[in-house]
Structure formats: C-alpha cells, structure tokens
Write a protein that binds this DNA or RNA. Structure first.
Length: 419
RNA sequence: GUGGGUAUAGCUCAGUUGGUUAGAGCGUCUGGUUGUGGCCCAGAAGGUCGUGGGUUCAAGUCCCAUUACUCACCCCA
C-alpha cells in the first residue's frame, strides 16, 4: 500500500477544524494590525534561498528539497518565507509604491530533516514581514502580533526571549573578542563546538553539553559590546514590550541560525511540546534585501510553526473546537421516496441550509442514528400519510418537538429549519 | 546524518514460563414489531499478529535482518 512520505502527513476532517480556527484567528489579528496577505510560489530558484538564507546555514547546506526540473533549472521548495517575500517586494517594486509594506502569510514549508515531535518535512507556518522601516516599534510589533495569536489560543507557559545581534561591524569585533577568549580553551570544548569556532562561533552559546556551557559561563557577551545605536534600539524594543504588557526575558544566547539577522532577534517557546520548543522565531534583517536584490530595504519579521502551536494547544487542552454539525437531516420513511427526499434536499441546500440524507438505503432507525451522529439540529421525515397529504414532518432533534408543514411551502420549511 | 524505543482488528490496547479455532473496549453494520436518534440490550462483520529469514514437534511469544513509525541529538518553526 502506498503511504505518505516520511515527515509528511494528511490532515483529516476531524483535525481540520483546529487548523481553520487558527487560520481565522491569524487573519483576524493580522487585520487588526493592518498586515496584508501575500502568497508566493511553493518553489523558487535555488539561488534565492542560497543567497538569502546563507550558503553555510544548515537549512541551505543540508535540508533543502532541491532538484533540477526538466529544463535543468535548479528548483527549491521553500524552506522559509522571508526570502520569498523580500524577493516579491523587490520584483514588484512594492517598496516604491509605498514606503512601508506590512505583509503576512500562511503557507507550507519544506525541509528534509529527520522528523520528530513537532518537526515535519512539510510543515506550515504563518508569519509577518514589515519592510521599509528600521524603527524598533516594528520589531516590538512582531513580538506583540505573535504573542497575541498564541495568547488567544489559550496557551500559557509561553516564554518570550529577546536578544540583539547589533550590526555586522560590532558583531565582527565581538566575534574577535570571543575567539580570543576561547583560544586557550578550545581543547576543552566539545568536538561540535570546536567546529563552530570557524563556522558560526556565536552558536557555541547554544551548546547543551556541560563542558561547553561551563566554559561559556564566563565568556564575554555580545550585549556588552553592541554599538550605541543598537543598544538604543534594543532599549526601545524592551520599553514597548513593557508597555504592551508582554513578559519577556533577555537571552544573550539567542543566536539565530540564519545569516541575515541584525539587531533584534526573538523566540517564543512553550514547555509543552517536547524538545522542539520554539513555537515562533524572528528578528530584524536589514541586510537581506541587498543580498538578493539591488537595493536596501530594512525589514523585520517572524514565522510561527502551526503544527507546533497545535501540539501545544493539544497538550495544554487550551482550546475546544468541534465540527459545527448540519442544519437538517432528511429521513425518508419509504425507500421509494429517495427521489423526493433528494429533491427536497437540493431545494433546501439552494436556500443556504446544510443538508444531509441517506444514500445507502438504510432503515429509518439507521437514518436517525446518522442524524444524531452528524449533530443535526433538525430532522425532516418524508413519507407515510403526511406525504400522501403533501406534507413533511419537521422534528427538533434536541427537544423532540414535531410539526407538519406543506411540502409545497419550501420557504416555510427553510425558515422553520433555520429557526 | 547519529542514537534509543515500538510494531497484534478502523482506533486504544490485552495476549500468561513458546502449546489447540488470537481477545477486550471504542468505532462500524444489523436488529430489539407497522414511521423516529441520543441511553440500554442482542448479534454480525473486521486480523496472512509490519515484512523476510532462522531456532523448535510447535512461534503473536525466542534469535537475526529489514522496513515503517516514534522519541532524542543536530537544527529550527
């Protein structure tokens, strides 16, 4: 039997209600903050991600779904959205139509990693990008928007972590300091961390290995070596979060794996989703547009993992959503009346009601059991003596009350079914 | 890419020191008198015990391999 590919999954009808609820919520919150939806293709030229995310990152170097299409063009399924959004803004000169573009998306992403709890190869993110301003008020807005959505889902045990990476110059100076600090200790570092000294030295802070953490305990911190402008901006972000009532902590170890981040980086984590605890991550990327295009556009954004969020919702039992149920189930008393039931169903459906009936020639009892299972608000009986008098019986499934209505009076049937 | 765990009905799981026709609950279907659901009762369908080898008189049960799933590392959302 053919099954889904590892790391992908079907979302079945019973689960879809939660997805729809979350998507509706995202759209509502994004509208409140005046973000406009953008949709970009599922695949792009490989070079976009290679340049935009960074050749050396794990995402680009070992996780992308990259292949040659039939005309030998290197194609990549999008592993994240920011590069695509920036490409789109540049391509359509949205930045020239208006100075600030506030955009949001809900989209599948693809990364070929080993699946585990909260990690899939096709996964879904919603997120926002604000392009055209380097104001810290937008950095804070990203965190506020993301937090707003997560809070509205009833999630507790959220932690907001923020940090600032400053600008490249101060960061490079700091990296030199860090390298000096580690130079005589590198022998004691884990093999992984020794490798990082050359590739991405900041990530050594992230190591979960005890010896590494011990050594990094006394390492100089980037925060202490930021330039004045970066510090000022970071202060502003903190101030705005305080005013917004968002609890946060500063995490100097929060170093994102993607190359394009500058200034603010942040993450919102949950304790209730296993080891892949980051529900949401983002930051400022003032240098990205120039990397993939021909002009500077400052930007800030975030992405949130829908599967992880729903996992947290599931584990915290913070949300009750159920299938809405149908308006009316048409029960036919005699098998010969299927055609009449079918006609009535069509008429009621055309007047906007959600209607179901039996397609399996089942008994009246079985039909009623089905009506009950479908959580039908009303049932209509068609047949017997009432049908000979050209009437139907309308039953309220909750109270059990029944009334007869003329079959020809469709408006009356529809209205009473609604009410 | 590297480790650990699991694999029996549609789902959740039992299955005793290897020993006859492999079980339960839920779900599904049918019925419990003329044309009416939820609760209850009765019955039915549904499994080559992940796959392939091996040990044995005998394997769901022991051994090996393989695949899938899963959790963790890594990385990230």
């Amino acid at each position: 039997m053919i099954k889904t590919i590892a790391g992908t999954k079907d979302t079945l009808p019973g689960e879809i209600v939660k997805w729809r609820y979350l998507e509706d919520l995202v759209r509502k919150v994004m509208s409140e903050f005046n973000y406009k939806e953008i949709r970009t293709p599922v695949f792009e030229e490989t070079a976009l991600f290679a340049r935009g995310i960074g050749e050396a990152t794990d995402i680009v170097s070992k996780e992308m779904y990259t292949f040659l299409d039939r005309s030998e063009t290197s194609i990549t399924l999008k592993p994240e959205m920011t590069a695509s959004v920036v490409r789109s803004v540049l391509e359509h000169s949205l930045d020239k139509q208006q100075q600030l573009n506030k955009l949001y998306y809900i989209s599948p992403m693809f990364r070929q990693e080993r699946p585990q709890a909260g990690r899939f190869r096709q996964f879904h993110q919603f997120g926002a990008e604000a392009l055209g301003s380097s104001e810290p008020s937008l950095d804070a807005e990203m965190i506020i928007v993301a937090y707003e959505v997560l809070k509205s889902l009833g999630l507790s045990s959220l932690e907001v972590k923020i940090n600032s990476l400053g600008v490249p110059e101060s960061r490079e100076n700091y990296k030199k300091l860090l390298r000096e600090y580690l130079s005589d200790k590198s022998g004691k570092l884990s093999e992984e961390s020794r490798k990082r000294m050359d590739t991405n030295i900041l990530r050594i802070f992230d190591s979960k290995i005890d010896v590494d953490q011990e050594i990094m305990q006394n390492a100089p911190l980037l925060m202490e070596h930021l330039d004045d402008d970066s510090l000022e901006k970071f202060e502003e972000v903190k101030k705005l979060l305080l005013v917004a009532g968002i609890p946060f902590e500063i995490d100097p170890k929060l170093v994102r794996g993607l190359d394009y981040y500058t200034h603010t980086t942040f993450e919102i984590i949950s304790k209730n989703v296993g080891s892949q605890s980051a529900l949401c991550g983002g930051g400022r990327y003032d240098l990205l547009a120039n990397e993939i295009g021909d002009r500077d556009i400052p930007g800030v954004g975030f992405a949130a993992g829908i599967e992880r969020i729903l996992l947290a919702v599931e584990n915290e039992k913070s949300l009750e959503v159920s299938e809405p149920g149908i308006d009316v189930y048409i029960t036919r008393l005699d098998k010969e009346l299927f055609g009449d039931a079918y006609d009535l169903a069509l008429s009621l459906r055309r007047s906007g009601l959600n209607v179901e009936l039996d397609y399996l020639q089942r008994s009246v009892k079985a039909q009623m059991r089905e009506a009950n299972r479908l959580n039908a608000r009303k049932a209509i009986f068609i047949g017997g003596e009432e049908f000979e008098r050209n009437e139907i019986v309308l039953k309220d499934m909750e109270s059990g009350d029944q009334q007869t209505i003329a079959l020809s009076d469709l408006d009356s049937i529809a209205n009473k079914t609604k009410g």
